[in-house]
Every structure is written in C-alpha cells, then in structure tokens.
C-alpha cells in the first residue's frame, strides 16, 4: 500500500486512456506524456501501459507500507527517498516505511511514478485513468488517500538504468494545418508560425490556453460544431488559441486552425507555463 501524506498540486492515476468512446463524448484521458509513463513502467518491471501516478508541477509525499520496485520519469521534481536524492530514469528498490517526496518541478510539468504491480483503483471502459465525469468519479488523489498494490507474482528485483538526459523544455512544437486553417487572415497564418507563444497558467488536463500575438479571423466566418481530439488547436473569437488536451471535450464550436500530432503533444505537455516556444508548420 502507498499512503499520500501530501497529494501535490494535481495528482491522478493514468494509463494509456480509454478508446472507442469519444463517439459518446467520453474523452480518451490517459497520460499527458505517454512516453514517460512507458519508461516508468519499464523501470518498475511492469507491462508497458500499466497505470501510474501522474504529478503536475509538484510532487507528492508518499509513505510506502510494503517493499517494492519503483520508477520515476518525466519532469524533475527533485525527488528524495528518506531525504536522499532519488534519481529519475533508474529502478529504485523501496522498503516498507520509506518516504518518497517530491518538490516543485525545476524542469518539465508532468512526472510519473510507476510501482511494481497493479494500483488498486476502478476500471472504467478499459482504463484506470481518472477523469472527473462531472464529479461522479474521483478526479484526483487527495491528502490521506491510500492506494493498495495488487501483485500476482513475487517481487522482481530487476534494475534498469536508462542513462538518458531528456530535454523537457522544447522550444519548438510541430503542427499541421487544421481543417479550418483558412479562416485565418494571411497575417494570422504568418503570425502563428513566426511569433512566440506561452502556455497560460489557466491550463489543465482538458486544454492549454496559449498567450502571444492574437490571431485574426477572416470576416464573415461561419462556425459549426466539429469533432475534437487531443492536439487540436481551436481559435476562439478572442484570438488566443486553445490546444485540446487528454481530458478535453470531444466536440467544439470554434474553428480548428491546427493539429499537434500525438508524439509532439507529449513534448508540448512538458513545456512549463510562461516559457516561450514556437509553433512550426510541418
């Protein structure tokens, strides 16, 4: 069992997400940086897409009530185990009573903790990912929560060290033209590629608001409700784009001016709020 002595800013359980239900407006959810989740599972000796804890901007303080193997990846939350530095990207052996603690991230936004075994949480439509569902299921881990670990085989002590240095501070994000790209004025098309954007602090797992040059619509633009998937860039009349993210709505009424492909979106989801980056048309 793991006990959350402190929950962190926004901590949830995520896996690959749920698919086939967007028709019914159920978002896919899942890890914001799936590559980091996969690595964490490899370190902990888990199947590739086992459910992990996802931390946003700040780590949690966790007491382990049993011996296990863990893996930490993603953002650098300066993790410590019983006060000693706990390295990311390598397997860590923990004992009952050990305390893992994370601070504010100094690089990247989302960090992942994989624990060998299966986290005991409800399965909804093939996924353990948390999603608010309008408050009918838990959206996040709260202080005092305990999560049991279900293991169907003895602990495997297999140490992996990935010896990698990841840049979580991308300066460029590739995008392709969205279905309604042509509602942009010629100036806005240029501006979208030439100028710097920042992710607003008013962003969450549903969407990221971009700050930068406002983008203009052509006059007399008609808009209709259209399908949305994570990575779609919408343009509200304010002229500040919104990137739809993993828990985002499945349809929307604003023009879809661009699309950030899945693997680029994982990079995008690690860019810290307020840091400048550019959108590169590909």
């Amino acid at each position: 069992m793991l006990e959350f002595l402190r929950a962190g800013m926004y901590t949830s359980i995520q896996d690959r997400g749920r698919y086939g239900l967007a028709y019914y407006s159920i978002p896919q959810s899942g890890a914001m940086d799936l590559g980091a989740l996969e690595m964490a599972n490899m370190l902990a000796g888990n199947p590739k897409h086992a459910a992990c804890f996802e931390f946003t901007l700040q780590g949690a303080k966790i007491r382990f009530h049993e011996e296990t193997m863990i893996g930490l990846t993603g953002a650098d939350m300066q993790w410590t185990l019983n006060g000693e530095e706990a390295g990311r990207f390598q397997s860590i052996h923990v004992q009952a009573g050990d305390i893992l603690q994370g601070a504010y991230s100094i690089e990247g936004v989302r960090a992942y903790l994989a624990v060998q075994g299966r986290l005991d949480c409800p399965l909804h439509h093939g996924s353990y990912s948390f999603y608010t569902y309008g408050k009918t299921t838990p959206a996040r881990i709260q202080q005092g929560d305990s999560i049991a670990i279900i293991r169907d085989r003895p602990l495997s002590h297999n140490y992996v060290n990935l010896m990698i240095l990841l840049d979580h501070d991308a300066k460029e994000i590739k995008f392709t033209r969205g279905p309604e790209w042509d509602i942009l004025t010629e100036d806005a098309k240029q501006s979208m590629q030439d100028s710097a954007f920042k992710i607003s602090a008013q962003s969450n797992r549903m969407g990221a608001r971009l700050e930068g040059n406002t983008l203009g619509w052509r006059p007399n633009t008609q808009t209709k409700t259209a399908p949305l998937v994570p990575g779609m860039i919408q343009l509200p009349p304010s002229g500040n784009p919104i990137v739809i993210l993993q828990d985002g709505q499945t349809t929307g009424g604003y023009p879809r001016i661009g699309y950030i492909h899945t693997e680029e979106l994982w990079k995008f989801n690690q860019i810290r709020y307020g840091r400048e980056f550019r959108l590169i048309l590909s």
């Binding site: 086939g20 028709y23 209709k224 409700t225």
Partner: peptide, 26 residues
C-alpha cells in the same frame, strides 16, 4: 453513419466522432 463505422470495430481505429457536418476517425 458514424455509429455503423464505430460498431464495425475496424482494426487500428481508436475513436470515431461525429457531428452534423463531419465524421472524424482517429
């Protein structure tokens, strides 16, 4: 029509979303 595509469970399709003017197959 999108419901028929969804129910056909085509390999490699992760989602089908439909509005009045577009079917989006992820």
């Amino acid at each position: 029509i999108a419901k028929q595509i969804l129910d056909a469970a085509i390999a490699g399709v992760s989602n089908v979303i439909a509005t009045e003017d577009e079917i989006c197959i992820q």
